[in-house]
Design a binder for these strands. Structure first.
Length: 447
RNA sequence: GUGGCCGUAGCUCAAUUGGUAGAGUCCCAGAUUGUGGAUCUGGUUGUUACGGGUUCGAGCCCCGUCGGUCACCCCA
């Protein structure tokens, strides 16, 4: 209840009926408010993503965050849909889900217009995703995610390009080559290894799960877990996983999947991408990836984790019937990237989008400075005027707090002489200018 | 869904074995009715997350709920 009402007994009586608790001001569990400073960072992140994606010729698409629940049930296990997503029944009895990822949506869209789209297709999207689980570092209930996909190319050209965009993305965020590592593996190579030592399909799923954890658990636990599933065949498997190269040697360079992987790494190397690491234990879930998978890893000791990743997922189009469409792509979330930028000191400094703040000095009226502001906006700069009518010092202080780079105080003198002292709040320097010079001065100031 | 740690002023944090809440900062006013960050003076910070319980007495102890954080599960 508001204090004002508490003072008045009559009001108290009236509002007792409502007797509402004070509303909580914090955001819903696991989601974020974006105050201007936060929005600035999000906008920075998405602008780098957008710029990079478009520099490779990718077109932006979008879709509603709400989808029929079947879209996810068909693809992933029933458990993920019921326990890890926001799924509910709408008023019309339809079961719907807030999208936890973009891939099913984009596959749906591509399939629907397959005949009129010109392949290969290069698409990207920056959209929010939802998942229902307890928040932890790098994983909230809502996050924004860039999705980069290339459809209609079945050879390694697609993988090479998509990984190059990921690498370029990191470079455009200011990362150096040794800040991160690109880990690559092939699901098909794992399959070949499994069949070469007689692993049954029924054992594969559990085995992949353990292999994926190899770097997170001790080698003893790893060996024991493997042994538990495949018994005495584990010796051979563990031996192969001891040294990365051993797996490739075991299958031989005539193996088409090995050939493909080596070709991809050589291609990337020729682009000047050197921070690549063949990582046989890289699995990435076990849902729809069919061949090459890759992950971008943060190499800093404090934040050793996967930043984002993706791979080839040709089979997902089976869901919608019809022909298979080859597809390679990845998803990159804003939360992990934000952590990465913070960790590596790559966060941009906040700056207001307002270029100039006009302080009002009495007896000049708000109307008079409004006219000036309006003319300046027409000349191409963003201008805010004071409405507080407080002391000049306070007006300047507020402008500075809002990180507005320039201010000008307008009073009788300025109106009479038509000369304005444009003050740079960071340096404290003032320049006396005519009105028509102001816009150009600010635009070329580099602030 | 499970577990550890945590929750005191807008923010960062104090408060002795349980004895009715404090500092810095921020904010507001003034010194300074046309120029910010400095200094000085004065001023407001609060149902100690919420709800129960134990006690003469709870910020402190116990139970529950909610939230934060980290991890597990899972990973899109």
């Amino acid at each position: 209840m508001i204090d004002l009402f508490v003072l008045n007994p009559l009001s108290v009586r009236i509002f007792l009926m409502a007797d509402k608790k004070k509303l909580d001001t914090s955001p819903y569990k696991g989601v974020r408010d974006f105050y201007p400073e936060d929005m600035y960072v999000l906008n920075y992140i998405t602008s780098v993503m957008r710029k990079t994606a478009e520099s490779f010729g990718y077109s932006e698409y979008g879709a509603s965050p709400i989808e029929p629940a079947e879209l996810y049930k068909a693809k992933s296990g029933e458990e993920i849909v019921s326990e890890q997503t926001y799924t509910f029944t709408d008023r019309g009895g339809r079961e719907v889900t807030l999208r936890p990822e973009m891939t099913p949506t984009v596959a749906r869209m591509v399939t629907a217009k397959k005949r009129e789209l010109s392949f290969p297709l290069r698409w990207y999207s920056i959209s929010n995703m939802f998942r229902y689980e307890n928040p932890q570092k790098g994983r909230l209930r809502e996050h924004y995610q860039l999705n980069m996909d290339i459809f209609g190319v079945s050879g390694l050209d697609a993988e090479a390009e998509i990984i190059e965009t990921a690498w370029q993305m990191m470079k455009n965020f200011g990362a150096k080559d040794d800040d991160f590592q690109i880990r690559i593996n092939s699901r098909l190579i794992l399959d070949d290894i499994f069949s070469s030592i007689g692993i049954k399909d029924s054992e594969k799923t559990v085995l992949l799960k353990i292999i994926d954890k190899k770097d997170k658990i001790s080698s003893d636990v790893f060996a024991d877990s493997i042994k538990k599933i495949i018994g005495n065949r584990s010796n051979e498997l563990l031996n192969l996983f001891e040294v990365n190269q051993r797996i490739l040697d075991h299958l031989g360079t005539d193996n088409p999947n090995v050939k493909n992987l080596i070709g991809l790494i050589e291609r990337l190397d020729s682009f000047g991408i050197k921070n690549i690491q063949y990582t046989p234990s890289l699995v990435r879930g076990f849902d729809y990836y069919t061949d090459i998978v890759f992950e971008i890893f943060d190499t800093s000791p404090e934040n050793k984790r996967s930043l984002f990743g993706g791979g080839r997922y040709d089979d997902i189009f089976n869901l919608f019937g019809g022909d298979v469409i080859p597809a390679v792509g990845y998803g990159m979330g804003d939360v992990t990237i934000r952590d990465f930028l913070t960790e590596h000191g790559l966060m941009p400094e906040y700056k207001s989008n307002t270029d100039l703040f006009i302080c009002q000095v009495s007896p000049v009226s708000t109307q008079e400075i409004s006219f000036l502001a309006s003319r300046l906006r027409a000349s191409g700069i963003n201008v805010a005027i004071d409405l507080s009518k407080r002391k000049i010092g306070d007006q300047i202080k507020n402008a500075d707090k809002m990180m507005i780079p320039f201010i000008v105080c307008v009073g009788e003198e300025e109106i009479k002489n038509k000369i304005y002292k444009i003050k740079n709040l960071k340096s404290g320097k003032e320049n006396a200018l005519e009105e028509k010079e102001i816009s150009n001065f600010i635009k070329t100031s580099g602030v």
